[in-house]
């Protein structure tokens, strides 16, 4: 049981009258990369955003069911959202650093947490930049604007910014869809390093990416989780006809 980080049971979600998630059951293992694939509008991003309660921001959302992270139901209204979101970090589709310097982008959440010790902040910044392999490239221009970086560097910086809150889970919502193929490969390589320390859930509509990076894969269609299992099995020996049609490119 302890090898499961996230347990989802009977999760249903509605945007006003539209049901976006239907009876989702799934378990995500610690220190693995789990990919959620499916055509646009299948609810994969919605599912991802229930794990850090980002759906709360949308008006008219209703959720039923249970999402346990480390055994704690995070859909409970009594949960501390701020510490949940520190524990479950998120990387977005478009690299979106703040219009601040490289250093300040990472120091941002530390400063808001009230950490004033300069040495401590510097150590944190260095450590998180090192873990996304940006330190050597950027250590001499930490003061320059984060907006001047390349897309790939920006996305790495965004990952580093997430790491600084010391998350245990990292959610990635199509993190490579605005990157070129080479940059995509480099980010995927980074994920392999990160999974030693973090549980990663990645949403992607790029099936090759899912088959390259992930250990387990779930296929979603029209709000339902059609099939879930080890990535190899899903891609070589899908049990459901719809999964097979999708991964062989017959639709989507």
């Amino acid at each position: 049981m302890s090898q499961y980080k996230i347990n989802v049971t009977k999760l249903n979600l509605w945007y006003k009258d539209f049901q976006a998630l239907k009876d989702i059951n799934l378990s995500i293992k610690s220190n693995l990369i789990t990919a959620i694939i499916g055509p646009s509008g299948c609810g994969k991003s919605t599912l991802l955003r229930t794990f850090n309660r980002m759906n709360d921001l949308i008006e008219g959302v209703r959720i039923k069911g249970e999402v346990l992270i480390d055994g704690e139901n995070i859909l409970d209204s009594k949960i501390d959202l701020l510490s949940l979101r520190k524990k479950v970090g998120m990387v977005f589709q478009r690299p979106n650093p703040f219009a601040l310097s490289i250093f300040e982008n990472i120091a941002f959440s530390l400063r808001i947490q009230g950490i004033k010790d300069k040495k401590k902040i510097e150590t944190f910044v260095e450590k998180s930049l090192k873990s996304v392999f940006l330190w050597d490239e950027l250590k001499d221009k930490l003061k320059s604007s984060a907006l001047s970086l390349s897309l790939e560097q920006k996305q790495r910086l965004c990952i580093a910014r997430t790491l600084v809150t010391m998350p245990e889970v990292i959610l990635m919502d199509e993190p490579c869809s605005s990157l070129d193929p080479l940059a995509t490969l480099k980010i995927e390589e980074l994920l392999q390093y990160l999974k030693k320390d973090y549980t990663i859930v990645i949403v992607t509509h790029n099936m090759q990416q899912a088959s390259r990076v992930s250990d387990e894969t779930g296929f979603m269609l029209l709000g339902e989780l059609i099939e879930f299992g080890p990535t190899k099995e899903i891609f070589t020996n899908p049990k459901d006809k719809r999964t097979e049609d999708y991964i062989s490119g017959r639709f989507g």
Partner: peptide, 21 residues
């Protein structure tokens, strides 16, 4: 909207997000 989302996703409160972002 993304600026607010990023800030929330870092576990930063709404008031801090408004003030700092």
């Amino acid at each position: 909207k993304e600026f607010r989302e990023v800030s929330f996703s870092l576990g930063i409160s709404k008031w801090q997000t408004i003030k700092r972002v």
